[in-house]
């Protein structure tokens, strides 16, 4: 019990004096996960919108697949991305393995299905509402997707933030393709795992507190945005 209390106190001190190692790790974490979520959104939002709007053979199968991949185990993503980026892999020439680029790639792959699945659902609702009008006006397929993504942007931000939460919290994928190298590819989750194993509780707990704080902040933001969006959408009178 005393160990925990001491570790906690030391952790708070580290946070308070903005310990250099701690700050570096947090910044790298945010950079990697934020980049991954932005890249993933560029793919996942149009993908989710297309799955909501277009009818094509095999659509149901794709939807089921995307939903199933939401729960993709990070270590499996890590393994696949590792195989692609390893020296003998098809993308080995990039030389990304054990660099932040590899970590961004792995987290991008990890969160695309989550963002696409959540986006598909909220865009499907909006499409039900808009379909007649957009078809009446004669809106083309690409513009239809763009319109739905733009008009559904508040609901979609929730999907993106959920993606960020998943990316920032996972350990398996980044540790495999990043290698957890000090000052290079060490992020919050991998550091917590390592420091705990070493018995360095202060840094582990400090990072744990910050990770919780970031996750909480993201969730509060998601909630607030959703409420604001509801406020804009709801007072529709019949």
């Amino acid at each position: 019990m005393r160990e925990i209390a001491e570790g906690f106190a030391a952790a708070l001190k580290m946070i308070a004096r903005l310990d250099a190692d701690l700050v570096q790790i947090v910044l790298l974490s945010v950079r990697v996960s934020l980049s991954a979520v932005i890249l993933a959104s560029l793919v996942a939002l149009p993908l989710g919108a297309a799955l909501a709007v277009f009818r094509f053979p095999g659509r149901r199968a794709v939807v089921v697949l995307v939903n199933a991949l939401m729960g993709l185990p990070p270590v499996v993503v890590g393994l696949v991305v590792y195989l692609f980026l390893s020296r003998s892999g098809p993308l080995g020439f990039l030389g990304w393995l054990f660099t932040p680029a590899a970590m961004i790639a792995a987290q991008t792959v990890l969160v695309i299905p989550l963002i696409a699945a959540v986006a598909r659902q909220s865009i499907a609702e909006l499409w039900t509402e808009y379909e007649d009008e957009l078809r009446s006006l004669g809106v083309g397929p690409l513009r239809t997707l763009a319109t739905l993504i733009w008009d559904g942007r508040f609901a979609l931000l929730t999907a993106v933030l959920a993606g960020f939460g998943r990316a920032a919290a996972e350990v398996g994928a980044v540790i495999m393709v990043g290698g957890n190298i000090a000052h290079v590819t060490r992020v919050m989750t991998t550091s917590i795992a390592l420091e705990t194993a070493k018995g360095e509780l202060a840094l582990a707990m400090g990072l744990g507190i910050l990770l919780m704080a970031i996750s909480l902040a993201v969730n509060i933001a998601a909630y607030a945005i959703n409420e604001a969006a509801r406020g804009r959408a709801a007072p529709e009178k019949a």
Partner: peptide, 26 residues
């Protein structure tokens, strides 16, 4: 042609932007 539905379908935009959007599509 144009059509107005029984429950008019308006985009989640300003009144002016709704008209502007339709004109731009056409």
């Amino acid at each position: 042609q144009a059509m107005v539905f029984q429950r008019p379908i308006l985009l989640r935009r300003s009144a002016a932007a709704n008209i502007d959007y339709a004109l731009s599509v056409r």
